[in-house]
Nucleic acid binder design. Sequence first.
DNA 1: GCGCGTTACTGACGCGAGTTAGTGTCACCT
DNA 2: AGGTGACACTAACTCGCGTCAGTAACGCGC
Lengths: 329, 329
Amino acid sequence: MASRAGVSRTTVSLVLNDRSSSIPDTTRQRVLNAARDLDYHPHHSARGLAGGRSHTLALVLRQSAEQIAGDALLAETLRGLAGAARSAHYRVLVEPLTPGEATYGDLVRSHRADGAVVSGPLFDDPELSDLVGDGFPIVIQGNLPGSSAPSVDIDNVASARGAVDHLIELGHRRIACITNAPLTYTSAADRLAGYRAALEGAGLAVDHDLIEEGGFDAASGHRAMAAVLARTTPEAVFAASDVIALGVIGALREAGLAVPEDVSVIGFDDIPLAAYFDPPLTTVRLPANDLGLAAGMALLDLIAGRDVPLRTLLATRIVIRSSTAPRAT
Amino acid sequence: MASRAGVSRTTVSLVLNDRSSSIPDTTRQRVLNAARDLDYHPHHSARGLAGGRSHTLALVLRQSAEQIAGDALLAETLRGLAGAARSAHYRVLVEPLTPGEATYGDLVRSHRADGAVVSGPLFDDPELSDLVGDGFPIVIQGNLPGSSAPSVDIDNVASARGAVDHLIELGHRRIACITNAPLTYTSAADRLAGYRAALEGAGLAVDHDLIEEGGFDAASGHRAMAAVLARTTPEAVFAASDVIALGVIGALREAGLAVPEDVSVIGFDDIPLAAYFDPPLTTVRLPANDLGLAAGMALLDLIAGRDVPLRTLLATRIVIRSSTAPRAT
DNA sequence: GCGCGTTACTGACGCGAGTTAGTGTCACCT
DNA sequence: AGGTGACACTAACTCGCGTCAGTAACGCGC
């Protein structure tokens, strides 16, 4: 106990927790000095027990091992979340969850974390609705229509539309779309919807021969693109993730088509390696760090009992590199 | 309190914590049923306070924001660590740390975590040695010569040597090396040492014109390769990371050199995208998940007071794809 | 001199579980 | 019947801190 500073425990607690009580600066300094001299670090569990808060945010990754491993933006999101947490003297507990194996409800029910950001496939997750129903602070990263928990996401529809608009502005008409995941994933469905909206907005027909479902790795993008090429040759491709785009570019090259001379390709996400693809990939920048930051802030607000908008949508912007070019005349 | 099962708090505690005391199965079941019925979750902070352990492992990432964002294997390492933690009913707190800004000593000093795995640039980190000196359980991920904390790492020297041996076996003699980081990083120095050892083992001279320092992104690999090409044209390149390899391949292509027909390239790490590079990258597989797992197990051993080897080195293996080929005759 | 308010602190309780020392019960043996 | 020991359980203390109610000292006006 740092009460060696000549004051009581209470005073120490007041000083260290910045309770705006009336404590003269001299006393405050005395306490702070003593704490430093004694290398005093309040016991976290004791604080949590007495204060009723764990000062911990949980990040639940409800994804398969492969998805987690292949998520090039996870680290950025985590950094953003940790940054938000730090601003409130919170820290982040990460729980990678092989679906169907473990549960995460106990994390928050046992007060190990004061709230959780849940990301991953959100459909078909009874645990999530239970927690939300029980009033625990939960923020959804992504989109779960119908849930009453606040969510933070990018505007997938508008972003995808922007990407396809870019291709249209370059003069392309026959534009293929390879989705970034099975359509049960809302992000995949939304990006496809944006693609459709762009075409319709430009008065172009939606041709199902030009649409294929991709998965989470580049191989699926390769397969999907090959499937499209077996039917027809597009002028441009909207690859709904950069990883898919890498597979798409490979399939195009194998078919003897040059990017962007013969076919333009635009990606989505702007992963760190996208700028070094061959050719450097034009893509939609997903603000991963901001996403984590916004989710963290929303969660902290929720924990503090402040109002949180049900849906926060972050803007994206197109990063133009060399994989898109005007239509050949 | 689940003592609604008709027993005392103590009995509940004994049952739920599997203390091997004498508790008849009927009572045990009664407690377990009651716990389930009441949806009872022991308060984490209370357990931590009473038991003196937080059941939490910290993962400290002492790297710059860019390094963290660009680390494609971080998620895998984290998964491995979380897996190890789970086996002991522990969980993982992640602390991404912009160097020089924040500290992490309080994490373990305040008993918020029972121990920490520290990764990143380890030289010049007084906090680390302080913690180790004070007897806190710390496991180093990587290599910090002179530290008395146990470390878990891959054998960078042997792995790099294996990679270069592969190139030599293919008949290549003039082999360039682009490092994966500045040489102040032990992993970069070690991989370079492995490169040298392989050359010397084969009776080849080490030509400084063939060696360049790379950084953490593909652009640095591109620059470094271009610098080498300005002097001479190698038959093969050992790129000490896959990210570097991507830049190297780009530089070679710009110089009109085909991979692997004109120049073979071998990478290091086997990041998820390596298989989809053009050409698919031959590389050294870094067992990221096992690394996290081993670090976690070592840390748990340390916490439990068990003996831990000072240095654990995990083996790697070469993954042969299409970026390496026999020397053209 | 008294009352009142403010400032500057402190004593003691309680958070919810782990744990120790101790109590009661029962079967079995002498 | 009395003693013994294993068994099954419990009361009460403890962890380290937040916090509330309470107190003492002091200033100020009348």
